[in-house]
Write a protein that binds this DNA or RNA. Structure first.
Length: 517
RNA sequence: GCUCCGUUCGUCUAGGGGUUAGGACACAAGAUUUUCAUUCUUGCAACAGGGGUUCGAUUCCCCUACGGAGUACCA
């Protein structure tokens, strides 16, 4: 009875994988690993009209970036191959036919126009829920209303048809959702869903149930948007005779817009200036013909560990005060029972905070590649040792990896301008006098360490009877051009004696006219 | 409209028939850092409303309100 846990992530390749999809994948993965089970990836590409080139590759890359490994899937194969529904097309029809034979499904020949006309008619009659169902199907062109020989004739003539599920008129369908508990729906609320489209492809509902059965999926963990169709799926399992092995369902709360209304969408990214995709997605806008990019977390400077941690907490929590989790820790701590029921607003501030925490916990050496990337873009260079030092000095003040440059450009470029706010308040005659002597004193040193820089400054200060607070900000702006940053003495050491003195002298010259009395 | 799901600080949430309703983000103040950031301390701030059940309800039940999802030959 203790079957191996098998879960699947089943996206459809219609564009870049949304961050909500990544979270669904993550929860599946955490659950699979926690239970010592298998994680499958299945590509649900039954809608050929919405298929997007490269989307599958994007999905794979996104999962890999986040640290999700797939046990079975299109790229790695497995005992249930193929894992793309388009490649499984021939497998579905027999199940649809099985349903027709058992009297649980039927052929329907209605044209789109006829369907539209039916809906219009029902609306005009003020029918509560216009649908193709137990009542209306008696008035449509299908194998339940048409004479048997005509059905046969139409089928043989190759007329287009679909296969619809014959939903019972009166039945109570119930399912025990792992997140929400018992959910009950009356069958009259479900319409006669199309199972097999006229192009011979199954719809999501059929393909999903058939594949989950064939792939021996034990737990279906997916977004809440599927909850309303879950009873339909239960019905399918029942009619197909698979009730005994029906997977357990767990419907995850939705990711909502930060400002309140609705599902998180691409628009929110544009409006809020934050990503809703894991990776950049480059494409050509069909309307304008222009190349566009939808920004991704990775390219925005988010660390994958931070994004994973952030996503894990969107709808789940460990019940303790611990917030920082490695993937391994998440696997240990994860349980579906602790998944929340209510929708979760997407709070980018929290994502930033996680990123900051992860950046801060890295060593200087680990951050060097990020800095190097920035330097390469600007064709700058520095010794590996100094890069490590710089990263160490800067890491506590980063939110994003690229802040290494924003916060520390002065390590590589002599200031060309000086923060006017600092200059107008701190560039006093007194400070200038001290700084002038200080530069001269530094110049006499054979080399420069932070220690020496400090003791030398103290000596000059003492000789002139000035307090450090009166000059340090001025000195900082002279050397870095800005009023904030890590320990100035450390900066000087990294810069070295020559550059430090040269920068001070340059500032003294440039700011000569700005001295305040 | 109809069906389903949900509702604890601004946000993410813990908790649970009797609690000073806890934590985190954000925000504010203070300390440290002669800067900024970090760090630390403190503060701010919530059980949607109405009925039950109960000695007692934020917690259980019902209703209402609000929010969300679904309602395609899309997934």
């Amino acid at each position: 009875m203790n079957k191996e846990v098998r879960v699947r992530f089943a996206p459809s390749p219609t564009g870049p994988l949304h961050i909500g999809g990544v979270r669904t994948a993550l929860y599946n993965y955490l659950f699979a690993r926690k239970m010592g089970g298998k994680m499958l990836l299945r590509i649900e590409d039954t809608d050929q009209t919405r298929f997007v080139e490269n989307a599958e590759q994007y999905i794979l890359e996104a999962l890999q970036w986040i640290g999700i490994t797939i046990d079975e899937g299109p790229s790695v194969g497995g005992p249930c191959a193929p894992y793309r529904q388009s490649e499984r097309k021939p497998m579905y029809k027999q199940y649809a036919l099985q349903l027709v034979e058992s009297g649980n499904a039927y052929y329907a020949f209605d044209t789109p126009e006829e369907l539209e006309a039916m809906r219009k008619r029902l609306e005009a009659q003020k029918v509560a829920s216009p649908a193709y169902n137990a009542i209306t199907r008696t008035q449509m062109k299908n194998s339940l209303t048409l004479p048997e020989d005509e059905v046969k004739r139409r089928l043989e003539a190759g007329e287009p048809y679909v296969i619809r599920l014959k939903v019972p008129r009166k039945d109570e369908i119930r399912l025990n959702d792992l997140v929400r508990g018992w959910v009950m729906v009356h069958s009259s609320a479900i319409d006669d869903k199309v199972l097999m489209k006229s192009d011979g492809m199954p719809t999501y509902h059929l393909a999903n149930v058939v594949d989950d059965h064939l792939m021996e999926i034990t737990h279906v963990i997916r977004g809440e948007e599927w909850l309303p169709s879950a009873p339909l799926h239960v019905l399918l399992y029942k009619f197909l005779g698979w009730e005994e092995t029906m997977p357990q369902f767990a419907h995850l709360p939705l990711l909502l817009k930060p400002d309140g209304n609705g599902k998180l969408s691409k628009r929110d990214a544009d409006a809020g200036g934050f990503p809703v995709f894991p990776l950049d997605w480059k494409f050509q806008n069909k309307e304008t013909g222009k190349d566009e990019t939808w920004i991704g977390f990775r390219e925005q400077g988010y660390l994958s560990d931070a994004v994973t941690n952030f996503l894990a907490f969107l709808g789940w929590n460990p019940g303790t005060n611990q917030e920082l989790f490695t993937m391994e820790e998440l696997i240990q701590a994860f349980s579906i029972e602790r998944v929340g029921k209510s929708g979760t607003k997407f709070d980018i501030d929290k994502a930033k905070w996680f990123n900051q925490q992860y950046l801060k916990n890295k060593s200087g050496a680990e951050l060097v590649p990020f800095l190097q990337k920035e330097l390469q873009q600007r064709q700058l260079n520095a010794s590996p040792e100094s890069l490590v030092r710089i990263c160490d000095l800067l890491k506590e003040r980063l939110v994003f990896a690229h802040d290494l440059w924003n916060q520390g450009a002065y390590f590589f470029l002599s200031p060309t301008e000086y923060d006017p706010q600092v200059v107008t308040s701190k560039w006093t005659q007194e400070a200038v006098t001290v700084i002038t002597s200080y530069a001269a004193a530094l110049d006499k040193l054979p080399s420069l360490t932070a220690e020496q820089a400090k003791s030398t400054l103290n000596e000059v200060l003492e000789a002139q009877g000035v307090k450090m607070g009166k000059v340090l900000q001025a000195l900082r702006v002279a050397i870095t051009g800005v009023g904030a940053g890590p320990d100035l003495m450390q900066i000087m050491e990294v810069l070295g004696k020559q550059a430090t003195v040269a920068r001070i002298q340059q500032a003294l010259t440039v700011l000569n006219s700005k001295v305040i009395a």
